[in-house]
Measured scan of single mutants.
Amino acid sequence: MEVVDPQQLGMFTEGELMSVGMDTFIHRIDSTEVIYQPRRKRAKLIGKYLMGDLLGEGSYGKVKEVLDSETLCRRAVKILKKKKLRRIPNGEANVKKEIQLLRRLRHKNVIQLVDVLYNEEKQKMYMVMEYCVCGMQEMLDSVPEKRFPVCQAHGYFCQLIDGLEYLHSQGIVHKDIKPGNLLLTTGGTLKISDLGVAEALHPFAADDTCRTSQGSPAFQPPEIANGLDTFSGFKVDIWSAGVTLYNITTGLYPFEGDNIYKLFENIGKGSYAIPGDCGPPLSDLLKGMLEYEPAKRFSIRQIRQHSWFRKKHPPAEAPVPIPPSPDTKDRWRSMTVVPYLEDLHGADEDEDLFDIEDDIIYTQDFTVPGQVPEEEASHNGQRRGLPKAVCMNGTEAAQLSTKSRAEGRAPNPARKACSASSKIRRLSACKQQ
């Protein structure tokens, strides 16, 4: 084909351009004929944790799935940006308080904090938690009735009371019990989460009196709706648990309003109706937990002794299953770290194939690490110290990083047969305790 000078094309009309061969290198194709290559998922490591896909996002930050490269346990990490926390009232204080509380709590029905990582340079905090497959609110939203069968609701409620009793025994008032803060594992274990607005009572406090509340409006008791200066913290949790039980068994809320002012007005009056299909035992329990006067409201001991709580409820309806993943529609909620794991395991070791967030990740503290002497050669063979940054567990980050890069360049065919977990650990520049 004859090559045409581009400067001469402006002298031709459209018809003349076609005659000189423009149609031979300008093609129009339908979008259905285009085959897009999927974007390669680059592996990203935060300390010893391999990052997966997004699980959810809230006002405080994002939650992603991660894999512990040492234990191969599935975890969830809450990623918090200090810049964003400053824009939220009491944001930083709530996060630090939640970390302090979770560090000393150990119960099967309370979410466990596994690790805390802090990135000084990017001003990011990573709260590594045990993995929960789904939230209770997500399960309720997945069915038209917006409720659980009585047998399933009873099982979840009993676990909620177990976890709540443990928190109260530790002198902690949750203040925000609701389905949105109750998570579930694949085995059906309920976990109380989000202790950001919780309050730890003084060890020598005479009672459970509280003065502040930041919980969700629909789950607040009349004493808070009416603006009382002080109130019983434990009875606030009992009320919120009662509203939660009402919601998961009926699909409704005892109090509603077009806006928060109308909602608080209705809560302050204390008038509500219980659907007739709840039955006398459940209705009596709800009335005891939603008692207007805090002094007359049920205690956890009274809830445990109630006939509806103690009764064994046979399954009359099919239980609400864990819904498919909202993004991938995966009904099994498979591990989202698998594509990243395959990338590390299947590809040659190259620095361009993975990302390490930083050479140094500070753990379990908000301060910069200490310094240790770096050896410097002298005339008599002895070495003197220069400062060298280290990880919180004493690992020399720069030395590990250099060693990792040197190993990656060394030709050794046997290394390709290593397991995925050992490869992740070798790529991680800074081991965590």
Rank of each mutant, 00 (worst) to 15 (best):
A273D: 05
S401D: 08
L386E: 13
F148T: 00
E375T: 05
A198W: 08
R74C: 07
L160V: 09
I88T: 12
R425P: 13
D176Y: 00
P319Q: 11
A198S: 02
A43I: 08
G215N: 12
F298Y: 04
D327G: 06
S271I: 07
L80R: 02
Q432G: 15
A205V: 07
P217G: 13
I46R: 05
K64A: 14
F366L: 08
M125D: 03
N393A: 14
D327L: 14
M127V: 05
P324C: 10
N119G: 05
E351T: 13
K191S: 08
R74L: 11
Y261T: 06
R425M: 13
K388P: 05
D359H: 08
L282K: 03
Q7W: 07
E57Q: 06
H168G: 02
K423V: 09
R301L: 15
Y166V: 07
G270V: 09
E130V: 02
I172A: 06
G171I: 12
G346F: 09
N393H: 13
E351P: 13
D176V: 01
K175T: 06
L341Q: 14
P339E: 02
K388M: 11
S428E: 15
K329R: 02
Y49S: 06
Y261I: 15
D355V: 07
S59N: 12
E349A: 13
V372P: 12
F204D: 07
S428L: 04
D194E: 00
S404C: 07
T71V: 06
V368D: 13
I300G: 02
H202L: 04
E65I: 04
E351F: 08
V133S: 06
V110H: 05
S404V: 13
I111R: 08
T71M: 03
R75C: 13
E293F: 06
L140N: 01
G257E: 10
N380W: 06
I35C: 11
A347Y: 10
E376F: 10
K269N: 09
L182S: 03
S31V: 14
G91V: 02
T328I: 09
E70I: 13
S193G: 03
M129W: 03
W332L: 13
V236A: 14
D176H: 00
L252M: 04
L285F: 05
N393Y: 13
D162S: 09
M11C: 15
A295G: 11
L344R: 12
P254L: 02
P38H: 07
H107L: 01
H168R: 04
R147G: 06
A241D: 02
I303M: 02
D53V: 03
A414W: 15
E2Q: 08
R297T: 00
T336I: 10
A43T: 12
L105W: 02
E376M: 05
M125G: 06
G242H: 00
V243Q: 08
T336Y: 08
E33I: 03
C210H: 11
S421N: 14
K41P: 14
A414F: 11
I111Y: 05
S142D: 13
S307V: 10
A406G: 10
P321G: 06
Y131M: 00
G257L: 04
C391W: 04
L164N: 01
A398R: 11
Y36S: 02
L9I: 11
G215L: 06
G394S: 12
I46C: 08
Y272S: 04
P413Y: 12
N181K: 00
T24S: 07
Y156Q: 01
E375R: 12
N109D: 02
E130C: 02
E293M: 06
E407L: 04
K97C: 05
F204C: 04
D284A: 03
H313P: 03
W239Y: 05
Y60M: 15
T363L: 08
G233N: 08
A43G: 04
Y60W: 14
S422V: 06
E138A: 07
H174W: 06
G52L: 11
L285R: 00
R103E: 15
K235Y: 08
K82P: 15
A429K: 12
F255L: 02
S59W: 03
R333K: 15
T249W: 01
D258H: 15
Q399N: 11
A241S: 04
L245H: 00
G288M: 09
G270H: 06
G370S: 13
D350P: 12
K97S: 03
T13F: 09
F204I: 09
I111F: 02
M335K: 06
D176N: 00
S422G: 12
G288I: 00
G233Y: 06
M127S: 04
F366R: 13
K81T: 10
E130Y: 01
N119S: 03
P413W: 05
K423N: 13
K416S: 13
S216P: 05
D352A: 05
L341T: 09
I361R: 13
S59V: 13
S378I: 09
I424L: 10
Q170L: 05
S216V: 03
E351R: 09
L113S: 02
E407T: 15
Q37S: 10
S401K: 12
D352V: 07
T367L: 12
H345S: 08
T24F: 11
G346E: 10
I248F: 02
L290M: 05
T185C: 07
L195W: 04
A397D: 10
S69G: 15
G58A: 05
Q214I: 06
A206F: 02
G227T: 15
E138D: 07
E16S: 11
N119R: 09
I99D: 02
R74H: 15
M129R: 07
L282P: 02
E374D: 05
T230H: 12
D162E: 01
M335A: 13
M51P: 15
R103W: 03
E256R: 12
R301A: 14
K175Q: 08
H168F: 04
A420G: 13
P222M: 03
L101S: 11
Q159D: 07
S378P: 11
T244M: 11
R425V: 05
Y362C: 10
L17F: 05
S325T: 08
R415C: 09
L9P: 11
I260R: 15
A417V: 04
K48S: 11
E256G: 08
T328L: 06
P319C: 03
M125S: 04
K175R: 12
G385M: 14
F25I: 15
R304G: 09
G56R: 01
E342A: 07
S404W: 11
M125P: 01
C278P: 08
L245Y: 00
L400Q: 09
E57M: 09
K431S: 15
D208M: 15
D365W: 10
L263G: 05
T24V: 04
L400E: 14
P323M: 14
